[in-house]
Design a protein around this nucleic acid. Structure first.
Length: 255
DNA sequence: AACTTGACCAACCGCCAACAC
DNA sequence: TGTGTTGGCGGTTGGTCAAGT
């Protein structure tokens, strides 16, 4: 499914330079790596601000930290992602968006930077963005709504599949499928979804539902809003009719 | 052979939350 | 409570290589 190999082991980095403050930037030399590694192994990865001075490096602390975390730290894998890793990254990206540190935490030996680079270089182009389906039609409410999806599902499975094909939520969307079995009956009613751009950086999804479920969502103190942490999607009860916040990291699922 | 273009990835930049004082 | 510092994070940049022209 995925083709992902390091083309070579050549170093492609910025040329070392020393800025006006005497701080070195750019590619790390072998000697610098050895100094940093020796220091960390002896004293541990703490007080990054002091590390350059104590380790005898002309680097800023931030640069040392980055070098250690992304390159020198023991246990790191380099390149050659397995199909399992690729599929896991895609799956996690669907779930978490560009939260690379969260994704990398579930991939032993991989750093957030490496996962991010790998996604941008290899995987992003392999995951086709979903487009709006022909079932979209405009709705009267909420009035700000630009688009609204109207769909009648018989079961949660139907609904999950609909969401997968329409919104690109492939993982059968725990937002919907984790409901209690008894709540499946609710899917006989109409579910409306809308999408709206509030500004360039923020996409919002609007949803309302005339027989709103109670689990597994966390209700607010008025029991009018329900929150799904998995997707950063907040859904509102029919009394409030619409409005939901949306993690902007998921924009690329929808745009 | 020379040049251009795109892919790749290490490293940097800027923002922000947590923490210390 | 306000301010400064630090570490963490995600986005972006810049340099090199390989392939194409």
């Amino acid at each position: 499914m995925f083709v992902s190999q390091r083309r070579n082991n050549n170093i492609m980095v910025r040329a070392p330079v020393v800025d006006k403050d005497g701080v070195k930037r750019g590619a790390w030399s072998l000697e610098e790596d050895q100094k940093l590694r020796a220091y960390i192994e002896k004293y541990g990865p703490w007080k990054w601000r002091e590390v350059p001075t104590l380790a005898g490096l002309m680097r800023c602390g931030k640069s040392c930290r980055l070098r250690w975390l992304n390159y020198l730290r023991p246990g790191l894998k380099r390149g050659n992602y397995t199909n399992e890793e690729n599929e896991l990254i895609c799956k996690l990206h669907q779930k978490y968006g560009n939260r690379w540190s969260t994704i990398a935490a579930k991939l032993p030996g991989r750093t957030d930077n490496e996962v991010k680079n790998h996604w941008n270089a290899h995987l992003r182009k392999q995951v086709k963005p979903k487009t709006e389906s022909s079932t979209i039609k405009h709705e009267g409410k909420p009035k700000e709504l630009r688009l609204s999806h109207v769909y009648e599902a018989k079961t949660s499975k139907d609904f999950a599949e609909y969401c997968s094909s329409t919104f690109g939520i492939v993982e059968s969307s725990s937002c919907f499928s984790q409901q209690t079995s008894s709540s499946d009956d609710n899917f006989g009613t109409e579910i409306n979804w809308g999408m709206e751009d509030y500004n360039i950086d923020q996409l919002q999804i609007c949803g309302y539902y005339d027989n709103f479920w109670t689990e597994p969502y966390v209700w607010d103190h008025n029991q009018t809003n329900a929150f799904s942490e998995d997707y950063g999607i907040r859904m509102f009860s029919p009394q409030q009719q619409y409005e939901t916040t949306y993690d902007h990291n998921y924009c690329d699922l929808f745009c």
